[in-house]
């Protein structure tokens, strides 16, 4: 990994997986009412992005692909969730109500998702998918799952191309028909795609066993857990401990009561 452009890219994938999963876990378990903690999580993630030399523009560009999906799911929650009414309006027969509980659930979903997506963007920008898979395998993730993910990554576009070719073949001979007829054709296409995928899988397996495959995916790349990895993980864990222990609130409390720092800690 000597050719890495930045510190985070040069890290062992295991240290990135452990660190990022720890951050996500802590964020998920933190109650949304502790908004200041989320501010600290955001600062921590920004610091990682800074070390990884990822610009806010790059993050925003990738984030905006995923955000609409989350917004689409979350936007209805304040109106659906039962609870104390915060705001309501009557439109004809309809009574629209926004509840406190709904707003908090909405914020919970949006804030945690956005922060997780930023982390995902940093992870994908600093780790190639094959390295990520190797890291997963080295962390004792079930081998079958890793192999499945590897094949999905390799063949998803081949399958999409195959599906596109089928769609084109249909479009060239399609001149309009009843809906029931169209569904029948789509059913055939899905069936054909399944059979072709199955046949391809058989051929790939043949190609693998001819080259000595015995169930274990080996790689020429060897990752070494260096002291930088150790420092990175330690830094992240210490930061998380500070956030989870409620350091912001304790400092605030100390300020109010004019107490010493050691008393706050």
């Amino acid at each position: 990994m000597g050719f890495a452009n930045n510190l985070v890219e040069g890290l062992d994938p295991r240290s990135k997986i452990i660190s990022f999963l720890s951050i996500i876990l802590c964020m998920v378990l933190t109650p949304i009412t502790r908004l200041k903690d989320f501010g600290l999580y955001f600062l921590l993630i920004l610091a990682i992005a800074f070390i990884a030399k990822i610009t806010p523009r790059q993050i925003l560009k990738r984030m905006f692909v995923l955000i609409p999906f989350i917004l689409f799911i979350a936007i209805f929650i304040p109106f659906i969730k039962e609870g104390n009414v915060y705001w309501s309006i009557k439109i004809g027969y309809w009574q629209l109500r926004v509840t406190y509980e709904g707003v908090w659930t909405f914020l919970n979903l949006i804030i945690k998702s956005v922060l997780s997506i930023i982390l995902l963007v940093i992870a994908s920008a600093t780790t190639t998918f094959p390295d990520f898979l190797q890291g997963m395998e080295m962390l004792r993730t079930p081998r079958l799952l890793v192999i499945l993910m590897s094949f999905m990554y390799r063949y998803i576009f081949v399958l999409l191309d195959e599906a596109k070719r089928l769609m084109r073949a249909r479009a060239l001979r399609y001149f309009g028909s009843r809906y029931s007829e169209q569904f029948r054709i789509i059913g055939y296409m899905i069936g054909i795609l399944f059979i072709r995928t199955f046949e391809r899988a058989k051929r790939i397996y043949s190609a693998m066993i001819i080259r000595g495959f015995t169930g274990e995916i080996r790689s020429i790349k060897r990752f070494q857990f260096s002291y930088i990895d150790f420092l990175f993980i330690t830094g992240i864990i210490i930061s998380l401990l500070f956030i989870v222990s409620g350091i912001v609130y304790k400092l605030e409390h100390m300020k109010i009561n004019n107490a010493h720092l050691w008393q706050a800690l």
Binding site: T128, F129, P130, L133, S150, F151, Y153, R154, Y155, V158, R200, R203, I204, S206, A207, M208
Partner: peptide
């Protein structure tokens, strides 16, 4: 495509 099943 049957023979090249690895990422790189």
């Amino acid at each position: 495509d049957d023979q090249l099943f690895c990422p790189t």
